[in-house]
Design a protein around this nucleic acid. Structure first.
Lengths: 107, 107
DNA sequence: ACCGAGGTACGATTCAAGTCGTACCTACGG
DNA sequence: CCGTAGGTACGACTTGAATCGTACCTCGGT
């Protein structure tokens, strides 16, 4: 199984994306972002992830490498934004699916 | 992360499904089935998986546990069928997404 | 100038998952 | 009736991934 590493530049790879979404914490982040139709920038620390800082860094790194997020570095803190356009173009329906999961979890 | 184990009886769990689809071999199986709109029964050994028999058993077991497939045991050999209705009901758009990946890989 | 909060780097640990070897079972065909 | 092919059970090995400890960096506020 070659399963070449992600190329966030242009092409999203399904395997990489699914592996990224397979983790509950990362999935929670993407689901939250997918549910917010304003697509505002969010601070990394604003997600309520029950893990240490280092692990959080690791997860956001993974999500960016998969091409699902883009980051803005302010030196001090960091912001993330969902790459909705790219994802919708490559995987139409995926974000709707995840957003639906947000509604579901709220119930 | 509780991430309770799958209950194939009724409810499909997103985490379990994504973890099942994260593996290239399992994903290949589901993609092939999703692309075939006739939804015919397929023999397990008819998929060209480059792994041993034991591993193949393991993968099909995982897919069934995730609720993506149902199996028919003929004693001698085994058939699988995509649980399209259940998947479409719980995750509308998911199978279309995977079927699109089949077309893509053919190119 | 200092301190605290957010973030990263590197290394170590731990655990899940994919994989296969060996052994055994079940049918079907000659 | 036996061989062969598909499948399962159990156990062992290996790798990848999640996690955290320690140390260090970058700002903003006081």
């Amino acid at each position: 199984m070659p399963e070449t590493s992600a190329v966030p530049g242009d092409e999203l790879d399904l395997g990489t994306v699914l592996r990224a979404l397979a983790d509950p914490h990362r999935r929670a982040v993407v689901i939250e972002l997918a549910a917010d139709r304003t697509d505002g920038e969010r601070a990394c620390h604003s997600f309520n992830l029950p893990v240490s800082k280092q692990t959080r860094t690791h997860h956001f790194r993974t999500l960016c490498d998969a091409g699902l997020l883009c980051e803005v570095d302010y030196g001090n803190k960091k912001g993330v934004r969902l790459r909705r356009a790219a994802i919708d173009r490559r995987f139409p329906g995926l974000l709707d699916l995840l957003a639906a999961e947000f509604t579901r979890s709220a119930r």
